[in-house]
Structure formats: C-alpha cells, structure tokens
Design a protein around this nucleic acid. Structure first.
Lengths: 175, 175
DNA sequence: CCCTTAATGCGAATTTCTTCGCTTAAAGAT
DNA sequence: ATCTTTAAGCGAAGAAATTCGCATTAAGGG
C-alpha cells in the first residue's frame, strides 16, 4: 500500500491493485478491511499509535524545534498525505479522535515542563496554528513539503509571539 | 454534485450517482469530465475563477480581516473540502496552479497598496502561513471550521509579527 | 430553409470491482 | 498426535463502473 501511494495517483488506487502488489488475494483484503479508506485509516492509526514520545531537550526552543522538524519529516513522507486523507474521508471511528487527544496531552506536558522551568510557553492551540498548520498547508497546496530550516523558522515565529513576561507586556496592564 | 457532497460520504460518491441526481445521462458526464476528480476540479476552478476581488478597505488590517473572514466562510462551506481534495488528488492540470498564482498576484497587490500607504505589510508567505493555513487546519483535523472572530484574531497575530522597522536585521543586536 | 457541427440521450457491450462458497493452511488446545 | 478455530487462497458469480455505436436534438452558417 505504501509503495503504491508513492507511485500511483490517488484516482487509480484500488483494492485489486493493492492485492496484486502485495501478493495477497483480493478477497482477503475485502474481508479484513472492506474498503480502501478503512485500509488507509488502519495504516494511519497504526503508525500514529506507534508514535514516538515528544522531545525533552531541556529547553522550550529545543523541544519545539525537535518536534517541528519531526512533524515536518513525517508530513513529507507518504504518511503526510494519508493523515490528511484519513482525517477528511472520516470513515474513521473514535480512534483518530483518541489519538489527537492523547497527542495533545503529551504536547501539553511538554509545554508545562517549560513553564515549570520558568519559561513562558505558548498555549497548545497557538503551537498547532503557528507551527503545525503551515506544514500541512505547504504539503497540500504547494505539494512541496517543508525543510528542517523552515520548520525551525516557524518555531522562531511562535516564540516571538509570546516572548515577554505577563507583567511587562507592551500593551496590557495586568491587575 | 454540490448537493451530493453535502449528503453523501466521500466514499460512496460516483458518477452514476451524480448522473441520476442531475438527470443527465452517465455517458455525458464521462465524456465531458472522465472522472469524478476532474468534475470536482472543474467545479473548484470555476468557483475560484469567479472569485471576488480582494478587499480594499483603506487599511491593511481592514483588508486582511475582510479577506480572512471571507476565506474562513469559504472554507466552512462544502467548497472548503473540495479545495483540499482537489489540491490533493492532483488530477488537476495547470489550472489549479494558474489560479493560485493569479490569487497570489492579487494578494500581493493588496499588500503593496498597504506599503504604498506607508504601512508595513507582512510578506505573502507569512500571510498564508499565519492566517490561511490555520483555517484549513481546523477544517481538516478538527472538522470544525473557524468563526469570524477567530479569523480576525489570526490577522491580529500576523500584524503583531511585523511591527518593527525594515532596516534592522532579524538577529537583534541588543546593546 | 437546409446543412453542418457539436453535444446529449439511449441502451448494450465491456471492463473492473466486490462478494460468495468452498477448500486449504496455520496456530493453539486437549 | 488430533481436533478446533481462524484466516487465507481460489475461482466463479454478482454487481457495479466505464465505454461504445448509433439515433436524436439544438444552434449557427450558408
């Protein structure tokens, strides 16, 4: 399946194709998965669940850069397209949701570690919007994944957004 | 086709279905488009080309907010998914590219108008990454499009990024 | 008005996908 | 070792989908 995703256009993918390439009988695939989307979902959630732990380098910037570069690589692989497709086709059960939640918890832990060290981390939504979202955007609309330097630039942008202590903000007087 | 996109799951869409719903003969659809992706692409580029001009409100923030809110609405409509699908399936010829380019030119014009007024606009890539990318990200992964206020918040974030003089380098020499 | 061109309707032929019944192989339990 | 259970192989039947040849209609040019 992964091979085919690299070679074939989305349109021509079919279960008979996968069967031929993999050497298993078509009926077997139909019995185990029933549809291409289900197969793709299975691959995705399999990979996702096997996901490595979030980085812990000792600094917020280090953690964020390591994570961003890793996601960028991930998105660049054939898996990137699969994530998007699986999320969109939505034949998925609760698995996808579960994963996202679990991942969110891990990332939150990373941010809280930073806070515990006295750094001022962004919140999770900000991280996703400023760093992760552009990675997928480049993939989808420019069909050209993002390199490590660019990923690090995105982290830099994120950190520039929340750089100052709560008291000495440029505009807001806190009381 | 648009009706079906709202009702049916992606997996069950087929040309015979569209034919039945629309009342035209299957063969006609096959002759004119050849595949579902081509049909979708045609709809997308049709809508896109009919796209309204970029806003011109007199201020950079006003332009950006109007544009962001508009894109957010667009993404929330069934068309949002279509854009993503069309971009990914990639059965598109040069049309899609052409559109993106043309749109980029329009947006650039908007940014240059701001510069001509003495404002300091972000560059195009920044605009796309900070404002547009999150809109699609929410749609795809949270399956929940973004409201107007959130869209305006994204614009605010973008403007907070580029508030300072053009001459000084990025690696701020603090002394 | 007639003629030409291009597009659609129509149904059947063809191809491809999906399911079915059955046989065979592998793994665990007794 | 034998039995049981589960999954896979296999080819054919069934149900899609895509394509084809031909008749019909609509629009524009002479």
């Amino acid at each position: 399946m992964l091979d085919l995703l690299k070679e074939e256009a989305w349109d021509n993918l079919s279960i008979p194709l996968v069967a031929e390439r993999s050497g298993v009988h078509q009926a077997t695939i139909y019995r185990r998965w029933g549809s291409l989307s289900a197969l793709v979902d299975d691959i995705v959630t399999g990979r996702l669940t096997a996901g490595s732990p979030v980085p812990d380098t000792g600094t917020l910037r280090g953690d964020l850069e390591a994570y961003a570069v890793k996601v960028a690589e991930d998105v660049a692989s054939p898996m990137g397209m699969l994530y998007v497709r699986a999320a969109m086709v939505g034949s998925k059960g609760p698995e996808g949701e579960t994963y996202l939640l679990q991942r969110a918890v891990q990332l939150n832990a990373m941010l809280e570690r930073a806070a515990a060290r006295g750094e001022r981390p962004p919140d999770l939504l900000e991280l996703m919007e400023v760093v992760i979202a552009p990675l997928y955007y480049h993939l989808i609309f420019f069909n050209r994944p993002v390199g490590a330097e660019h990923a690090r630039m995105l982290v830099d942008r994120l950190l520039r957004l929340a750089p100052s202590p709560p008291a000495s903000g440029p505009a807001a007087p806190e009381s």
